[in-house]
Simulated scan of single mutants.
Amino acid sequence: MSRSVLFWRRTDVEGLERLELVVEPDGVTATSTVLCLEADGFRLDHRWRLDPDWRAQSVIVERWGPQGHATLQLERAGSGWRVNGAPRPDLEGAEEPDLSVTPFCNTFPIRRTPQGAGTSLALDTAFIDGAEMTVARSSQRYDRQGPGRVRYVDLGLAKGFEADLVVDEAGLVLSYEHLFERVAPL
Rank of each mutant, 00 (worst) to 15 (best):
S138E: 06
D129M: 10
P103R: 05
P87Q: 03
N84H: 06
G68Y: 05
R88Y: 02
P109D: 08
Y142R: 03
L99G: 02
L123Q: 02
Y142V: 08
W64N: 07
P109W: 07
R112K: 15
P103K: 03
G65I: 08
A70W: 01
G118E: 12
R111I: 11
G146V: 05
W64I: 09
L121D: 04
A117M: 14
R55I: 01
A117K: 15
G116V: 08
L99A: 05
G68E: 03
A136T: 04
Q145F: 01
F108A: 12
R76E: 00
W81R: 01
R111C: 13
A136N: 03
G80Q: 06
D51N: 10
W48G: 09
E95M: 15
D90H: 15
R111W: 07
N106K: 02
D124K: 10
V59N: 10
S139W: 02
G65M: 06
G68H: 07
L91A: 02
N106W: 03
G68M: 08
T119R: 15
I60W: 05
A131M: 12
D51V: 05
L74C: 03
P147V: 14
A126Y: 05
S138G: 08
L91T: 09
G148H: 07
D129F: 11
F104L: 15
E92I: 03
W81D: 01
D53L: 09
P147Q: 09
Q140H: 10
L121F: 14
D51I: 07
G130T: 09
R82K: 13
I110D: 01
R49L: 12
E132K: 10
D90W: 10
E62R: 13
L72T: 10
L157P: 01
C105I: 02
L44F: 08
C105L: 11
A122D: 10
P147W: 14
Q140C: 10
A70H: 03
F108Q: 15
E75W: 01
V153K: 07
G118L: 12
L74V: 09
P147H: 08
R43S: 13
E75F: 00
G146Y: 03
D124P: 01
R47E: 14
V135A: 06
I128G: 13
L157T: 06
D129R: 12
G156T: 10
V150S: 05
T102H: 11
E75C: 04
T134K: 14
G148R: 03
D45T: 09
R47V: 14
T119K: 10
S100C: 14
G68D: 00
E132C: 00
E92M: 12
G146S: 07
A122N: 00
S100A: 14
G93F: 06
R47K: 10
W54I: 02
S139I: 06
D90R: 14
E132R: 14
A126M: 04
R82G: 00
